[in-house]
Design a protein around this nucleic acid. Sequence first.
RNA 1: UGGGGGAUCGUCCAACGGCAGGACUGCGGACUUUGGAUCCGCCAAUGGAGGUUCGAAUCCUCCUCCCCCAGCCA
Length: 563
Amino acid sequence: MSTRAVQPRDFIRQIVADDLAAGKYQRIITRFPPEPNGYLHIGHAKSICLNFGIAQEFGGVCNLRFDDTNPIKEEQEYVDAIMADVRWLGFDWEDRLFFASDYFQQMYEYALHLIKTGKAYVCSLSPEEIREYRGTLTEPGKESPYRNRPVEENLELFQRMKAGEFPDGAHVLRAKIDMASGNLNLRDPVLYRILHARHHRTGDTWCIYPLYDFAHPLSDALEGITHSLCTLEFEDHRPLYDWVLENCPVPCRPRQYEFARLNLSYTVLSKRKLVQLVQEGHVSGWDDPRLPTLSGMRRRGYPPAAIRRFCDLIGVGKRENVVDVALLEYCVREELNRTAPRVMAVLRPLKVVLTNYPEGQVEELEAINNPEDPAAGTRPVPFSRVLYLERDDFLEQPPKKFYRLAPGREVRLRYAYFIRCEEVVKHPGTGEIVELRCTYDPATKGGQAPDGRKVKATLHWVSAAHAVPAEVRLYDRLFAAPEPGAATGNFLDDLNPGSLEVLTTCWVEPSLTRAAPGEIYQFERLGYFCVDRDSREGRLVFNRTATLKDVWAKLQQAQQQEA
RNA sequence: UGGGGGAUCGUCCAACGGCAGGACUGCGGACUUUGGAUCCGCCAAUGGAGGUUCGAAUCCUCCUCCCCCAGCCA
């Protein structure tokens, strides 16, 4: 063991390291506490990586706990989806799967204790009255007329609430703290409400349910959580968190620490907006590849390692932040460059006939699967007289700096030969280029010219007779503005109309015939593509995960902007 | 006019009284059988005013700006 400790990466790890060094804890325990009322997104990934990551780094453990105290909004479907997402991200809670609802009986008993010690009372004001009595940000509240009910009466009423004798909203249990506090959370906050609703786990056992501010500190204490990490908006709740733990006979004293939630440019992360995008059909569902949900990113082809790396790079702080989505995309490319097998695919095909190549001849050329990983080996790729090239790789009148194919010009076909464009065949009616007639140089097999002559470009291609048809879905950012809604106030105004382009006439090399959903490939010179779950043998479907940097496209863009 | 937080390159994160550093982005260049990748370089910041100190992003005072809080949601 080195005596010189490494500098913790952020203020929370600093606190944890200090606590451990001071002997405050033998072992730290954190928790990831999602409410099962929606799907996890990249913002949750930050919290998951933080909580599970800290536990791993400091030799502790992290619990998965569902914060299921509101039966009206929560469903088993979300529980299942959340567990799948956390596992996919690469974290393991082992046997530590918990639910706040597991603790309902104990929480009820803690509530009884608060009543008996005069710290809580049953309030029979209506919701509207409670709001009025609460006061405002600048004026103190008024005490409820029920605030000084005798303990016995509170006990009896609370038990009858639990027994189901009252309709929803008739009474609540409130903490007796301070109606004049500048912190509204301390103005006798509601601890329990009556809800005659079926809970996804406890069924009809309960008709009173604890609120977050009561349930969360108790759940933490019951699980022995040492560091309870949450986002900044709960900073105001910490005094209440501490109040609950101080006034209930809990087995230990967890501490709450707050960090800034993640915001990402060119997207939205609020649950409300995500729901709206899905429900109004702006996207195809929760796993639409354009969404920042974990299920969407999975379908898009983002590897979990890339997301973990991203969460490492963004750090943890307390200030408002908007992380550039380009950093996420960088992490995705970094990971995929290391791991994705290379293949050739032509998205917008242009037929090319090699007029001097023997009719009926087929050659098997050897292609490298991943230049970053020699162990990935090679594969054979068939070559023949009729090929498809990318339409973008040919220009009849090439501008400066366009090095690809043009009339009279020679280029290399990857792993194959040099070819020279001899003739451009156009549709007699429309003038559209329908075919290129080229010659190949048999001496350049493998891509080298014996006479030493060079070409400026290497193009990808597929053999027409062997190519496999595919649909390719080109995804781009869902929003066209860095901060959706910043200009007009309505985030939908910034929806990027070009966020999805579907290409149905693509061709991929035959090694992809049996490509399975979830597999991610690099289509050379184009980008990374993930086999979609809609894909079938004979009807392949790919999602574009990320583009490769295209210098020519960039030049072109710059030129267009100048014009 | 209440309470709680926060201000460092365009963005995110560091620097814990001692040369403001890294990453992403952008812009150049080298290399290249992916115009990919890789490599090299450049641009670029301590919100403001005072004070303490040999020395301040860091400590003190005042100011300015931004965010959160008035659910029987979490």
